[in-house]
């Protein structure tokens, strides 16, 4: 996913939407150079579409962090996550905005267990949002386990960034 690298440094939905649009040129260049792997273009397009719609939905939309972090082998929401999710719930309540909740884990331990752990984390975010009045049918949960790290490399500084749920508008 070409936007993965872009997403790493970006916390704001608004900025993400803007840059995802810009990055489509890079995407094509990359895949041209790659000769044959043109999946990046497709993925990038799908992403740009959904991001664009949220951009247009509300001009003065609050600039919210979209990544929720977790402790090792835990799917319990941390206190700071709760306040952030309350703000997301505020934004989503009563709308038809579809959101994809992507659960992830760090590289430690076994892969399929981490796949289940990522789903647990995304479920925790979903359940919290539903309790706050967000329409459950607008929330899709998917786990990537440890397959899509945000930060490459081994060590707590990378691991802490990878134990996460990404809220994908």
């Amino acid at each position: 996913m070409i936007t993965k690298a872009m997403k790493q440094g970006l916390s704001f939905v608004f900025v993400m939407a803007f840059l995802a649009g810009c990055s489509s040129t890079d995407t094509k260049t990359d895949s041209d150079a790659d000769a044959g792997a043109n999946g990046g273009v497709n993925t990038g397009t799908a992403n740009g579409g959904s991001l664009g719609s949220s951009d247009g939905s509300e001009e003065g939309m609050e600039e919210l962090e979209t990544v929720i972090y977790f402790d090792f082998d835990q799917a319990v929401l941390l206190p700071e996550a709760r306040s952030l999710l309350l703000a997301h719930a505020e934004q989503l309540r009563g709308t038809n905005t579809s959101v994809r909740l992507e659960g992830h884990a760090d590289e430690r331990g076994s892969r399929e267990y981490n796949m289940a752990l990522g789903e647990r984390r995304a479920n925790a975010v979903r359940d919290f949002l539903v309790l706050q009045g967000v329409n459950r049918s607008n929330l899709e949960v998917i786990s990537y386990g440890e397959e899509r790290p945000l930060a490459l490399g081994s060590g707590e500084s990378s691991w802490s960034k990878n134990r996460r749920v990404e809220i994908d508008y």
Partner: peptide, 28 residues
């Protein structure tokens, strides 16, 4: 960072020789 992920399912001899690709995807 910055490039499309690629995943390959590979088959080789037990000593790693003669690797053959069974599947390639940009998804895990």
């Amino acid at each position: 960072t910055g490039t499309q992920d690629r995943f390959r399912l590979m088959l080789s001899d037990a000593d790693g020789a003669r690797p053959r690709m069974l599947l390639e995807s940009d998804q895990p």
